[in-house]
Design a protein around this nucleic acid. Structure first.
Lengths: 343, 343
DNA sequence: ATAACAATTGACAGCGCTGTCATTTTTTTA
DNA sequence: TAAAAAAATGACAGCGCTGTCAATTGTTAT
C-alpha cells in the first residue's frame, strides 16, 4: 500500500542510498539518475517516512511552535502560517503552549526539544523577547527563529523576523494628527512586550515630527487586555482629568481599543464624534465592534510562514541565513476615527 | 545525555524487552521487576523515543486534530484540551486545518493518516457531521472520535463526545421567557451545522413548554458570522416587520449576537431595555461587547480533553469505549438581557 | 592511451524501539 | 515430588531511513 524507499529504488533501478540522496537534495547525483528517481517517486506516490528519517538521521524533520499568548487569533494565524511552510518542506509541527512566568521554562523546553528530537523552534512574543531564555536555548544548540517587534534584531542569537511596530504606530498616530487631533491619549500594553515599547516610540515620534507637545498625563500604563482598555479610557476621560482630556486615544491593540470603546459607552462619549480611538493588530473583532476600529494590519500568517522557512533553511544549513525580514503593519481606516470636533 | 531503553535495561538489570513491557503497561511482568524498571526509568529520567516507537511498532503514538472552522477561540480551546490529554498519555498531536468543501478531503486526510502514521483523528463540526466523510475514514480503518452536537450519537461509527445544545438552548430561551419575553427572534447559524438544528429545537421546545405560539417570521436563516447577525437583526427589527418585532433575539452564537448588537446600535435600539439579545458559546468577546452578552458556556477545553482520552484509549484498545460523554452548556447571565419592556 | 583525480554510486551498519518466538522461571496439578 | 501448565523474561530480527566508507564510473592531465 505505502511505498517505501526500497520500492522506489527497485523501480528506478538504483540503490536506496541514491534515492535517499535525491529526496534529500544532495549534490552528487547525476542529472539522469536524479530524473529516473524522481519519476519513480512520482509513479509510486512515495513519501518518505518521517519517523524513520528522524530516527536514522542526525537531522530531524520537526519544528515546534512555542507560545505563551492569550490571543487566540494571533496564535491561529501564526500556527497556520507555520504549518503551511512545514507542509511544503515536509516538516512536522509540534505545538507547545507554555507559561513564560514558569521558572523552569528553559528546562521544560530543552527537555521537549531533546525528547521529541526537534530541529528548531519558532518563538513569538513574549517568549521571543526573553533574552535569558533565548540565550539558554541557543547555548544548548537549539535552533531558534524569533518573531519580534522592532526594526533591527537586538542581537545575533538567531535569525529574526521583525515587525516594525514603531513605523506603523507613527503612521497610525499621524492619521490622528491629520484629522486634527493634538491631545492624543496612549493606552499601553504590557510594558514587558517590545511591541508596547515600539508602539510608544512611534507614537512619540509622530507627535514630535508634528511639533505637538508631549503630555505625560495622556499616557496610561496597561496591559494587553480589554479591562485595561476600559480602565485606561476611564482614567483618560475622567472629569478630574478634564483639562487634559484627549480627543483621541491610541490603544496598543484592538482588545484595549474595544475596552476603550466600552468605557466611552459607559461615560456617554460618542465615538468617533467626541473621541477617536485606534487599535492595533486588525484582529477579526476590530471589525465587530461599534464603531468598527481603525487599526493597523499585521500579516501574521505571512510573518509566520516566513519565520518557518527561515528556520527550516537554517536547520538544513542551506545557507547561513542571517537575513532578517521586516514587516510594517499598515493602516486600516474604519469608523472609530474622525476629524477632531470643536471644543 | 539522553537515556535510551538500553541504559534503563542495564541499570535495572533486565532485558530491553522487559523495559519495553513496563513502559507499555503490558501485563506479564512481575511486580518486583516492574518496580525495578520504574526506578531505573526515574533515575535516568528516561523518555521513550517517539520516532522509534512509531517506526518499530504496529501502533503509533500520534493523533491528529482535523478542523475546518473559522472560530479561532474554539480551535485554540480544543487544541489545548487535546494537547493536555496527549501530554499525559505520551502522544503527539498533529494539527491539520482543512477545507470541508474540498471534494478530495477524504483522500487528503487518509493520505496524511497513512503517511504520518497517525493512530487516530479528532473531528469537530462541521467535519464531524459529514457522514460520508466519517464513513469513508472508518471504512479505511482510521480511528476517529467525533465531537458533535446532540444528546445521543447519530450512529455508532465512532465514539462521540456530545454537546447537548438542545437543552442548553432551551434553558437560555427559558431565561428569556422568564423575563417576560414572548416574541423571541431566532437568528440561525449555518443550517448544515447540527448545532444550529439542535439550538433551534431547544428554542422551539422552550416556546412550546411555555405555550407561546411559534411565529415563523421570527426565524431568520443565517450563518455563524457577525454579518449574519447584523442582517438578521436588521430584518427582525425592520419597520415593515413591525407587527412581529421581537422583544428578544436568540442568536445561534456570540458572533451573531455581536452582529445583532451592532445592528441594534445602527437602528438606535437600546439593549437590553428595548431588546434582549442572547448569544451562545461564551467566547471571550462575549465579555467584550456592549453590553456584555448573556450566553451559554461550553467547556470546550474539557470536551476536547475528553475526546482525546477517548481516542487514545480506543487506540490502545484498553477497552471498547463505546461510552459517550455528554456536556450541557450552561447559562451565563450578563447584561444583554432584561425584563421585557411595556409597549 | 594511461595515470591520477574527481564524481557518482552502493553495501552495510545501526538509529531506538517493538513483534515474534524461544527459553527460563514459577506455579499448579497429579 | 515430579510432570504439566502457566507466567515471566530474553534473544533477535527488522521497522524505513541515513551516515560512513568503500567501490565503481567518468573526467582530466600527461
Amino acid at each position: 500500500m505505502k511505498a517505501t524507499i526500497n520500492d522506489v529504488a527497485k523501480q528506478a533501478g538504483v540503490s536506496i542510498k541514491t534515492v535517499s540522496r535525491v529526496i534529500n537534495n544532495e549534490v552528487s547525483v547525476r542529472q539522469l539518475t536524479r530524473e529516473k528517481v524522481q519519476k519513480a517517486v512520482e509513479e509510486l506516490n512515495y513519501q518518505p517516512n518521517l519517523a524513520a528519517r528522524n530516527l536514522a538521521g542526525a537531522k530531524s524533520f520537526s519544528v515546534a511552535y512555542i507560545y505563551d499568548n492569550p490571543n487566540a487569533y494571533y496564535i491561529i494565524d501564526m500556527q497556520e502560517g507555520i504549518l503551511s511552510a512545514c507542509k511544503q518542506q515536509g516538516f512536522e509541527l509540534l505545538i507547545h503552549p507554555c507559561d513564560a512566568k514558569n521558572k523552569n521554562i528553559t528546562e521544560e523546553v530543552v527537555n521537549m526539544v531533546k525528547h521529541a528530537r526537534i530541529a528548531g523552534l519558532i518563538l513569538t512574543p513574549p517568549l521571543s523577547e526573553m533574552p535569558e531564555f533565548v540565550k539558554s536555548l541557543v547555548a544548548l544548540d537549539v535552533k531558534v527563529v524569533r518573531i519580534m517587534s522592532g526594526d533591527v534584531a537586538p542581537d545575533d542569537l538567531s535569525p529574526c523576523v521583525m515587525v516594525n511596530d514603531r513605523d506603523a504606530a507613527q503612521t497610525i498616530t499621524q492619521h490622528l494628527i491629520d484629522l486634527g487631533h493634538k491631545d492624543i491619549g496612549f493606552i499601553a500594553g504590557d510594558a514587558k512586550h517590545m511591541s508596547t515599547v515600539e508602539r510608544y516610540k512611534g507614537y512619540r515620534r509622530a507627535l514630535k515630527e508634528s511639533n505637538i507637545d508631549f503630555n505625560k498625563e495622556l499616557v496610561i500604563e496597561g496591559e494587553y487586555s480589554f479591562d485595561s482598555g476600559v480602565s485606561g479610557a476611564k482614567q483618560l476621560m475622567s472629569a478630574e482629568n478634564n483639562k487634559h482630556r484627549p480627543t483621541a486615544i491610541f490603544s496598543c491593540n484592538d482588545e484595549i481599543a474595544a475596552g476603550a470603546l466600552f468605557a466611552a459607552r459607559l461615560m456617554n462619549i460618542s465615538i468617533p464624534e467626541q473621541l477617536s480611538i485606534v487599535g492595533f493588530e486588525n484582529s477579526p473583532f476590530s471589525r465587530q465592534t461599534w464603531p468598527k476600529l481603525t487599526t493597523a494590519d499585521q500579516p501574521n500568517n505571512q510573518i509566520a510562514e516566513d519565520a518557518a522557512n527561515l528556520l527550516i533553511s537554517q536547520v538544513r544549513k542551506q545557507k547561513n541565513q542571517t537575513t532578517i525580514s521586516q514587516y510594517v503593519p499598515k493602516l486600516i481606516i474604519r469608523d472609530s476615527t474622525a476629524i477632531v470636533s470643536n471644543r
